[in-house]
């Protein structure tokens, strides 16, 4: 996080937090910002208050990036996810400080959450070229046919990041969407958006093609409603939708039969072993038949 002063009395240079859309860092087209504070109400930064138009721009960029990202080899995607872990490790102290300020955690707890977030990228990086071997396979159909099922990415996924776990929660929902070849538009935690906006800087320097991930900060409902209703969004992860919002968004998502991942009933434990669910939720299964004969 940014502090107004350094220890030697030097005035710190503060970062202007921006959105991340199409590989660039624009301000909100609406020109709006909102005040982000730490747990004690101290001002941390003005974050962009993204608009419906920003959300649409991010979807266009994500769709444009889908062909390249989904068409990359699984090995290549795994390498890039691992590169994200490397870049994040290099900025470990910065993220721990931002997480501590954003979530009101002790230094040790914020560090542990950051470390877990780094390791989560590594965990998902390893899945890129294994998932098809675990959830796909040859089907022994009763006839002279070769029959093979393989997973393919759903498309553009809107991801509502968890409201409370600003980095570990975010990585835990974003990485599984990306590893299968989807592109993502992320809506950050409303009150703790800064780690997510800084993560965009990591993504931008990790060989992840521009547009594969868009990051939007602001009012969750305001951004999520147009995303849930967007006809060119294929799926939505409702992890960050609280109260009645989740049901409302799920209903809107029904219009073009988006794949919907509902939020957990109680408070989510992002430190738990993730399992496959968050990956398979955003995968289609394609089955190919081919005759076997002379």
């Amino acid at each position: 996080m940014s502090t107004p002063e350094t220890s030697r009395g030097r005035l710190a240079v503060l970062k202007t937090y921006k959105l991340y859309v199409g590989g660039k860092f624009p301000r909100s087209e609406s020109g709006r910002v909102y005040e982000v504070t730490d747990g004690k109400g101290q001002w941390l930064a003005n974050a962009p208050l993204a608009s419906r138009k920003d959300a649409r721009d991010a979807v266009v960029a994500a769709r444009k990036a889908f062909g390249g990202w989904s068409g990359a080899t699984a090995y290549n995607r795994g390498q890039i996810l691992y590169r994200i872990a490397e870049m994040l490790e290099g900025r470990r102290e910065q993220f721990a400080a931002e997480v501590a300020a954003a979530e009101g955690l002790s230094k040790a707890k914020a560090q542990a959450a950051t470390d877990a977030a780094i390791d989560r990228w590594v965990w998902y990086a390893g899945w890129s070229d294994k998932l098809a071997q675990v959830v796909g396979g040859a089907n022994p159909v009763a006839g002279p046919f070769f029959n093979l099922s393989t997973p393919e990415p759903t498309g553009v996924v809107a991801v509502l990041a968890p409201q409370r776990s600003s980095l570990l929660g975010l990585v835990s929902v974003l990485a599984p969407v990306l590893v299968g070849g989807n592109t993502a538009v992320v809506v950050t935690s409303r009150d703790a958006p800064l780690p997510a906006l800084s993560l965009a800087e990591v993504l931008a320097t990790s060989d992840l093609p521009g547009g594969v991930v868009g990051v939007l900060s602001g009012d969750t409902a305001e951004i999520a409603r147009p995303l849930a209703a967007h006809q060119d969004v294929n799926a939505i992860d409702l992890a960050g939708a609280e109260g009645g919002l989740a049901a409302e968004l799920e209903a809107a998502a029904a219009e073009n039969l988006k794949r919907v991942l509902r939020p957990t009933a109680g408070p989510a434990d992002w430190t738990a072993d993730p399992g496959l669910e968050r990956m398979t939720a955003f995968l289609e299964t394609k089955t190919v038949w081919h005759p076997v004969g002379a």
Binding site: Q79, G126, W127, K130
Partner: peptide, 18 residues
């Protein structure tokens, strides 16, 4: 290099190896 990358990813996923 690819071989080490691939099996690196298995080290923490052995319970999914069947």
């Amino acid at each position: 290099a690819a071989h080490f990358f691939y099996y690196a990813g298995w080290a923490d996923k052995l319970s999914w190896a069947g």
